[in-house]
Nucleic acid binder design. Structure first.
Lengths: 388, 388
DNA sequence: ATCAATACTTGAAGAAGTTAATTATTCGTC
DNA sequence: GACGAATAATTAACTTCTTCAAGTATTGAT
C-alpha cells in the first residue's frame, strides 16, 4: 500500500493522505476527531493510520485531557514522528545559496550558506551541490533519513516538472533545474517559486494552517504575494499570480522597472526606499540600514518615505482582501526588519481601503528571518512526500 | 445509484458526476475522449454513463466525423438531452423581478418580469411567487419537468443554506430566502449572489468553459467581479470577494459611497458617469442614454468621461490579472450597452497595467442582455442538480 | 460491581474503479 | 468482397477502499 520510502513515493489511498496531512498540519488529533473532520468513518481512519504507524511516520500519544461531561474511553491522539525523515531546503538568490535541514514538521535542525558568483546554470548547480554537502555535515542526525531537496527561487517555475521557465535575476529560460539537481545530488528534487514556497510553508506549518484561503505578502527588494484559495495554492495561468508589487497605487508615483508608474514595489520595495531616502538626504551612498536609522532618529522626510511605503503596502493588501477575501493575511519579509516603521501605516491604510467586512480580516505583520525562505523550499519538499 | 429526481438529489459516484458535468459543459464527447479527459478507464465511463442514459439525461449521437488516419470504429458521442429538465431563474432587483425558464444547457425558453414596489420580505416572496406562475404559463413544455428555482440578488449570500446574510439594496439581514421561497413555490430553491451566479453561468455555459481559472467583470450601476480559481468559484471569507469596484485607481478621484476615494465604481459606475456628465454639461436631468448620445456625437468632455471610465475598468481588470492570473477575462454588463465608447480604453489600460505575461490574458468585452442575470440564477439551479 | 459513555478495532459486505479479454464497426488493401 | 489493422465500446473478473455493524477497551459516575 505504502510502497516504502525507497520507491521514492509516499502515496496511499485518499484517506491515508488526508489523515497524514491533517495530523501533520493540525497537530495531534484522535482518530474520531479525524473521522469527523474528514467525513470518514472512524474505521477508515484506523485502517488508514496503521501503515503510517508501522512505517514510523505516525505514533500514538498517551491520552491527555478528558473530553466531555464525564465518561468514556480516553482518546489516544495520533501525532507525527517529526524525526522520521528530514528534508533539505535551498533558496537561490542572485549572490548566494542558503540552505536548511528540516524535520517533517518543518523545524530547522541545521543551516548553511554559500556565496554565488556566477549566475550560469553550472555554477549554481555546483554551489547547490556543495551546500548540500555542508548541510549533511552540519546535520547531527542520520543521513539516510534525508532523501529530498526543495529548491526555491524567484521567477516563473513549473513545479510539476521542476522547470525554471524564466528567472529574471539569473537570466535563465527553460532550465530543467529539478532534473539537473537530482542528478547532481542523488536526491528527489522539487522546484518552486520562492514566494509560493513560503506560502506553502505558512499554509501547512504557520499561520495559514486551517485557513480555507489566505494570503502571504512578502516585503523586500521585491513585493510579492502568495495566495491560497479554496485550500489550494493559486498558480496563475500565464506564470503570473500574486503580483501585488505591480498594482498601481499612485498614478503620479515614481517610475517602476516594470514599465508602470506608482507600483507598490516602486514605492515600498527596499530599493525604492533607499532611492527616495537618498533623494531626501542628498547622500548618494546611503544604505537601507542608514535610512532605517535616520527614520528612527526622527528624520522627518525619511520617516515620510516609510510612512508612504506602509500606506502603499496597505493599499496592496486591501486589494487582495477586496478581490479574493482571504480568511487571514500575513505580511512578512526581510523588508520588515524595520517593522516598527511600517506596522501602523500598513494597518491604517488597509482598514481605510478594505471594503465592508473585508476589513475584519486579521492581518499579521512580522519580520522574516532570511532562513525562512530556505525553510519554505523544504516545506514544498515535505509536501511532495505526501502529495506527489 | 441515482435515486431519481423525485428524491430531489442527483448525486452519483464521482465518475458519474464528472461525466455528466463534462458532457453538459463541453458538449458532445465520446466515451474514450471522456476517459482521457477525466483520467478514467473507458470502462468506468461506460458504467457511469448508463444510468444517466437510462434516466434520459444523456443520449448517444450518431457517429459523425472520422477521427484519425483511417480506420477504427467510429465514436458515438454522448450528449445532454437538454429538454429532460427545465429550471427557473429569477433575478431580484430593487424595483422588479425578472425570470426565465432554461433547459439543462441553460438555453432560455421563456421569460417574464414583474415590478416590485416594496422591498420587504413578504412582498418580494409574493412577487416571486407570481412571477413563477407567469413563467409556468409562458413555458410551452411539460410543467412536471420544472422542479428547481434559482434566485440571484446582490449582497452577501450563503448559498449552502440559502440565506441572505445582508442585502444593502433590500435592507435585509439574515433572511432565509431559500427556505421561504421553497415553501411558497414548492420548488427546490437555490440562492446565490448575482455576480457569482452570472460567473457560474459563464463558467459552465459561456466563455469560461474549460478554463481552470477565469474572471467575469460586470459593469453597471455597480462594478463587480466573479472569480473562478482552480476550477472553483471564489467565495470570500467575510462575504467579500471580487470587489473590483472598490479598488482605488485614482487617489484624487471622486468620493465613493463606500467611503473611499477614486474607486473604480466611483469613476466607471453608471451613476458616476451620469453625475460626471451632468457636471460637464450643466444639465441636471441628463440620463445615461443622453450621455451616451452626447459622447457618440463627439462631445469632448462627455467622451472624456467614458474614456476615463474605460481606463479605470482596465486598471481594475489588470489588478485581477496580476493577482490571480486567470486564463481569460470577460467584461460584461448593462453598462456596456455603450460598448463602443469603452472597448479600446479598457484594453489599452489593461495592457499597460498588466504585469509581464499577464497581458497575454484574453479579454472579451461584450454587452449583456438584462435577462442574462436571471439566466445566471437558473445556471446555479442547474449546478445544484449535479453538485448539491 | 455495574452502567453509560466514548474510543477504537475487526470482519463482512458493498461501492467504484481497473485490467484484460471480447465484441462492434470502420477503412484500406489485396 | 474477404481480411486485417485500428479504434470504440462493453463485459466480466478482480482490486482497492470504505462503510456498516458488531464487538472490545477504557474511563467516570452511581
Amino acid at each position: 500500500m505504502f510502497p516504502g520510502i525507497d520507491a521514492g513515493v509516499f502515496a496511499g489511498p485518499p484517506a491515508a493522505t488526508a489523515v497524514f496531512t491533517t495530523v501533520l498540519t493540525e497537530g495531534p488529533v484522535s482518530r474520531v476527531a479525524l473521522a469527523r473532520r474528514l467525513g470518514l468513518s472512524s474505521a477508515a481512519v484506523t485502517k488508514a493510520a496503521r501503515p503510517l504507524i508501522d512505517l514510523g511516520y505516525l505514533h500514538e500519544l498517551a491520552a491527555t485531557e478528558r473530553s466531555g461531561p464525564g465518561a468514556g474511553r480516553p482518546a489516544s491522539p495520533l501525532a507525527v514522528r517529526a524525526e522520521r525523515e528530514f528534508f533539505l531546503g535551498v533558496k537561490i538568490t542572485a549572490d548566494e545559496v542558503i540552505g536548511v535541514v528540516c524535520d517533517l514538521r518543518a523545524q530547522v535542525h541545521a543551516s548553511a550558506r554559500r556565496p554565488l558568483d556566477a549566475p550560469d546554470v553550472d555554477a549554481v548547480l555546483t554551489e547547490v551541490g556543495r551546500l548540500v554537502e555542508d548541510l549533511f555535515d552540519a546535520f547531527p542526525g542520520d543521513r539516510s533519513l534525508v532523501r529530498r531537496l526543495g529548491l526555491a527561487l524567484s521567477g516563473d517555475i513549473d513545479r510539476g516538472i521542476g522547470l525554471v521557465r524564466y528567472s529574471p535575476f539569473l537570466h535563465w529560460r527553460d532550465v530543467p533545474l529539478g532534473r539537473l539537481a537530482a542528478r547532481r545530488t542523488g536526491l528527489a528534487v522539487t522546484v518552486e517559486n520562492d514566494v509560493k514556497a513560503l506560502t506553502a510553508a505558512e499554509h501547512w506549518f504557520g499561520e495559514g494552517v486551517g485557513a480555507e484561503s489566505f494570503a502571504l505578502v512578502t516585503v523586500g527588494t521585491g513585493i510579492g504575494c502568495g495566495l491560497v484559495v479554496n485550500g489550494r495554492l493559486v498558480s496563475g495561468s500565464y506564470g503570473v499570480a500574486g503580483e501585488i508589487g505591480h498594482l498601481t497605487v499612485d498614478a503620479d508615483g515614481p517610475d517602476c522597472h516594470c514599465g508602470g508608474r506608482g507600483c507598490v514595489e516602486a514605492i515600498a520595495g527596499t530599493d525604492a526606499i533607499v532611492t527616495q531616502a537618498r533623494d531626501h538626504t542628498g547622500r548618494p551612498d546611503l544604505t537601507i540600514d542608514d535610512a532605517v536609522a535616520l527614520a528612527r532618529e526622527g528624520h522627518e522626510q525619511v520617516r515620510a518615505v516609510f510612512t508612504r511605503a506602509g500606506t502603499a503596502i496597505g493599499c496592496g493588501i486591501a486589494a487582495v482582501a477586496n478581490l479574493v477575501g482571504p480568511t487571514r493575511i500575513v505580511v512578512s519579509g526581510e523588508g520588515l526588519a524595520a517593522y516598527d516603521l511600517f506596522d501602523s501605516h500598513i494597518r491604517t491604510s488597509f482598514e481605510r481601503q478594505a471594503f465592508g467586512a473585508a476589513a475584519r480580516c486579521p492581518v499579521s505583520i512580522r519580520p522574516l528571518p532570511f532562513e525562512a525562505w530556505a525553510r519554505g523550499a523544504a516545506a514544498v519538499s515535505i509536501q511532495s512526500l505526501v502529495v506527489p
